[in-house]
Design a protein around this nucleic acid. Structure first.
Length: 230
DNA sequence: AACCCGGGGCA
DNA sequence: TGCCCAGGGTT
């Protein structure tokens, strides 16, 4: 019954175990420090698109030394932005997007960042970054639902119906329920870290996983394999 | 709702 | 080499 609606108690167990795991095993990144500006928080999410956190970590500090605010990046030479972003990939695309975004944000970023409707109207700001802004800047309980969070939730609670996670109502609702928590940010980070360190795409570390006893994937796939001695 | 795009990292 | 990574736009 992997696709049954998870009960509230299941979600509670999942939250509690992961938050405990996070306190000991969570990763540290500069963009998780307190006191970052909304400028830094939003740029960080753009740098993290389709890019491993460890990769972004390599240029994060340098980037903000060179480009400390919207104004600087808005008036910079596009080639220079590209060069700064080159080590993390997708640099041509990201440089152009960042500069256009900066030129818009430089005028009234406080207005744009406070409204989801305004954000959705900005090119290259999709569902994920919209949620990230609401979570990290507006203080709302929103999921950083990417392929990694999706993989963890689906293995534990059951698989989505649609291929594209952005339109899958089951997955969207589940992710919202999971991070609807007093410490929504930590829970989001816990799931992302858990996805990167334990519940990995290719070879998940089920044998040492703290969620093993209540995980759909473990109970239906891994245990059967063990039983057959495969 | 499926497909395409884009680069570095890694087994 | 193919798959993966804090996605987004297009058809």
């Amino acid at each position: 019954m992997p696709n049954m609606e998870p009960q509230a108690i299941d979600i509670k167990v999942f939250q509690t175990i992961l938050l405990t795991w996070f306190k000991e095993h969570g990763r540290w990144f500069p963009w998780r420090e307190s006191g970052l500006s909304s400028y830094q928080l939003l740029i960080a999410e753009i740098l993290l698109q389709r890019t491993k956190a460890a990769t972004v970590d390599k240029i994060f500090t340098h980037f903000f030394n060179v480009y400390p605010n919207w104004k600087v990046i808005a008036s910079a030479k596009l080639e220079e932005i590209e060069n700064t972003l080159k080590p993390i990939g997708l640099h041509k695309q990201r440089a152009e997007r960042l500069q256009k975004l900066a030129q818009k944000m430089n005028l009234n970023d406080s207005v744009l960042l406070s409204s989801r409707a305004e954000l959705d109207a900005i090119p290259f700001i999709g569902q994920y970054i919209g949620n990230a802004v609401e979570l990290l800047i507006q203080g709302k309980n929103k999921p950083l639902l990417d392929v990694n969070m999706a993989r963890v939730l689906e293995r534990y609670f059951g698989h989505r119906k649609l291929k594209d996670l952005r339109y899958d109502k089951y997955l969207q609702a589940l992710a919202h329920d999971i991070v609807d928590h007093p410490d929504s940010i930590s829970l989001n980070w816990a799931i992302l870290d858990f996805a990167a360190l334990v519940c990995q795409s290719r070879v998940p570390k089920c044998s040492t996983c703290v969620l093993q006893q209540t995980c759909t994937y473990y109970l239906t796939v891994v245990e059967i394999k063990n039983f057959r001695n495969e």
